[in-house]
Simulated scan of single mutants.
Amino acid sequence: MKYLLCFGIMISSLICNGQIREKGNIELTPIIGYSASNQLDSFLFGSSSVSGIQIGAYGNFFFNNRWSIRIGLLYQRMGTNSVDFFIFTDEYSERTTYLTIPLTVNYHFGTNRNWYINYGAGFGILTNAEANYNDGNGYVDINDFANPTQFGINCGIGYKFNIAPEFLVIVENSNFIGLADSTKQKSGKNFHMSFNVGAIFKI
């Protein structure tokens, strides 16, 4: 019984410390999530969000057990829906998709460094754009009018669940605020929020 107790304590210790990284450690994190997006001006007037699935992966490089830098590649859907709010009416709806490269600084905290927050920049490359003018034609291609790139601010918070010393699961909230208009014909900056789950592999 004594040996079983000692073995249990040793395994528990390994599991708890498995979350704490050291200088030079690298993590690879594939993620999938549910997203809701809007444009800031439409959101203020009650426009409903554009929902979608976000997929991608992050790479995380650690400077020490608290600080790391994270870069990723994400497929994201953004846009806005028509507005009908009292005297404010806009029948324009927009759907855009991007390959986004976020670059953030992560701060890891908590006893086992299982919490983290991040802040940084995001650069998006447009893959498709379409709009509905509510004229009976449905969604039409507007790639010629859309800006081919976008730049903005990324921030988020997450929690890591330890499964094994080299394998963890994350649940996180991630947000992107665009600093440039999505198209040349309409003035609108994207706001994108997602809730993601992912698996962390130490490499």
Rank of each mutant, 00 (worst) to 15 (best):
A57D: 08
G79S: 02
Y58Q: 08
S42V: 05
D90I: 13
S42I: 04
N128D: 12
Y133K: 10
I69K: 02
S35C: 10
N137E: 10
G72W: 00
N118F: 03
E130M: 11
G79F: 00
S37F: 05
S47P: 11
R66T: 11
S48F: 07
V83M: 03
F43P: 01
I125F: 15
G56E: 00
T127R: 15
V140L: 11
L40T: 15
Y58H: 03
T80W: 03
S68M: 04
A129Y: 01
F61N: 02
I69R: 03
L126G: 09
G52N: 10
N106K: 03
G110D: 07
E94N: 11
I125A: 14
L28Q: 04
S47T: 07
L126V: 12
Q54A: 13
D84N: 15
P102A: 11
N118T: 09
D90Y: 15
F43G: 02
I53S: 03
Q39G: 10
R77Y: 02
Q39S: 11
N65A: 05
N81H: 14
V140T: 15
Q54Y: 02
G72Q: 07
G46A: 03
D135G: 11
A131S: 10
Q39C: 14
T100L: 13
I125K: 13
P30R: 06
R113K: 14
F43K: 14
T127A: 06
Y133E: 14
N118P: 02
S48P: 12
W115N: 11
Y75L: 10
A129F: 10
T80D: 08
F123T: 04
G79Y: 05
F43W: 13
G56Y: 00
Y58L: 03
G110S: 11
L73I: 10
T29P: 00
E94W: 10
S82W: 05
N38P: 07
T89F: 03
N64I: 10
F85Y: 15
G33W: 01
F62G: 00
N65V: 01
G33V: 01
G138P: 01
T104K: 04
F123E: 07
V83E: 00
T29N: 13
F61H: 04
T100E: 13
A131G: 04
N60H: 09
Y92S: 13
N65F: 00
G122N: 09
S51T: 11
F109D: 10
I87P: 05
T29G: 00
Y34W: 13
F109M: 08
Q76K: 05
I53M: 10
S49L: 06
D144W: 05
F123G: 06
N64F: 01
Q54H: 07
R77T: 08
G120W: 09
V50I: 15
I55W: 04
L73Q: 13
G59L: 12
I32L: 05
R113Y: 05
I117C: 08
F123Q: 09
W115A: 02
G59T: 12
S49R: 02
V105C: 11
I55P: 00
Y98T: 04
G59M: 15
I69C: 07
Q39V: 15
D84R: 12
G79M: 01
P102T: 14
G46R: 05
D90P: 06
F45M: 03
F62W: 01
G33A: 09
N64Y: 06
